[in-house]
Design a binder for these strands. Structure first.
Lengths: 221, 221
DNA sequence: TCGCTAATGTACGAACTAGTACGTTAGCTA
DNA sequence: TAGCTAACGTACTAGTTCGTACATTAGCGA
């Protein structure tokens, strides 16, 4: 408990507003993702920080606003990743498959984000609704999908009109379910959807599914 | 607040253990689904019942066990619905499409159940793991899928070996996502996945997707 | 270098919340 | 019909939890 714990401050600064805020957000993200909004404790978040509870209220205002800030940062990270998507040099079929795979990878790599989204849905997305930032964040991935779909339809590779938002929902649903429902699915069906040895299998399955859907001859029904 | 509130008891009974338990489970289901496990309040559940908090502890033992009981009943309802599945008189393609549609309908009709499953996943499925009942409940739908897949593969309609559990995951993921992530998806993309006028569209989309996947010629990749 | 303010820490309180001790009664059964 | 027990109600408590009043200080700018 002595200052020996602290291994010679890298910055030479004790007071660093930006770092304090970032550290609070880091811990809060973990705690909210682990325990849900109501399950997480402000005191516990503070305790796992190098600062105190007072700072949470100083910088964020309260538990509710802290959760909103956590969501905002999590979505920002995802949108930034989407902006780095580079698949449009591929032919439409390969491009969509690649996009699906990258979505798959991103979901797998960010289970905390998936959990936060689940939690936010339990609460009716009220924090997103109340956030200006999240209202106008958009989705670069959607634009990419839109362009690939247009190219695919023009070339005749893709059958008829598929909506970009719908395709995004289709891809996301599989990726999301696999991570979000991992526990109940595993407990009930004895299969771990996120087991490393199944990873390639499910990744290919998603790609096959999406491509099959886009390239199938539609029968009348 | 007088006894006039109560419109002449139908049963002529004041004490009815079964009805009391059922009423507690009904209200608890609503409250847990609405607010999450930690968000729900035992006092509030009791208040919305014709009985008192004491009875919750008398019959269920505590909040944790009450939630487990809620889950057990919810899963029992779903399994009973699955047992009424009657699609095997159809040809494999029609049978799978019908099964997917019934799964779609069931998810739509039981949003509370979807929310409970989301909540249980936030908590690592610990209640399912701790429940004997849920451990051996099985899934009739899975057996149906298994038989249809076998028939479809034998007749050559379905390409190669698709696992029943995987197909179940594929169908469920779309149905689940549509209901569970309705709020965040709507807030971010401006589209209500559960809007009545979109219902047929998404129902057909799911069927098309699954059939396309099962009947596609697999390319090497 | 002096003072001012952003940044931080401490201690506390009011309200809530799961759970329980204790008392009561309906209505079945002998 | 007497009495016994499952079923039910009331009132309370111990511990928790969000939030805040008040005190302090680092370090930048004049």
């Amino acid at each position: 408990m002595t200052s020996v714990d602290e291994p010679a401050r890298p910055n030479g600064r004790i007071r660093d507003a930006a770092r304090t805020q970032a550290e609070i957000l880091d811990v809060a993200t973990q705690e909210f993702a682990r325990l849900g909004y109501d399950g997480a404790r402000v005191d516990e978040i503070a305790a796992r920080t190098r600062t105190t509870k007072r700072m949470i209220y100083y910088y964020f205002g309260g538990k509710e606003q802290l959760f909103t800030a956590v969501l905002e940062r999590a979505y920002t990270v995802i949108r930034e990743a989407e902006q780095k998507l580079d698949v449009e040099h591929l032919d439409p079929v390969a491009a969509i498959r690649r996009l699906a795979e990258l979505t798959f990878d991103h979901h797998e790599q960010h289970p905390d984000f998936i959990r936060l989204v689940s939690i936010e849905n339990i609460h009716g997305a009220e924090h997103i609704a109340g956030s200006e930032k999240l209202g106008r964040i958009g989705s670069p991935a959607l634009d990419v999908i839109r362009r690939i779909l247009a190219a695919g339809q023009e070339s005749g590779l893709f059958t008829a009109d598929v909506d970009a938002v719908d395709l995004h929902a289709m891809i996301s649903s599989f990726c999301f379910f696999r991570v979000a429902n991992r526990h109940t699915f595993g407990a009930l069906f004895g299969r771990d959807l996120v087991a490393p040895e199944q990873r390639e299998h499910y990744r290919a399955m998603l790609g096959d599914m999406v491509i099959a859907y886009l390239t199938a001859e539609r029968s009348t029904h």
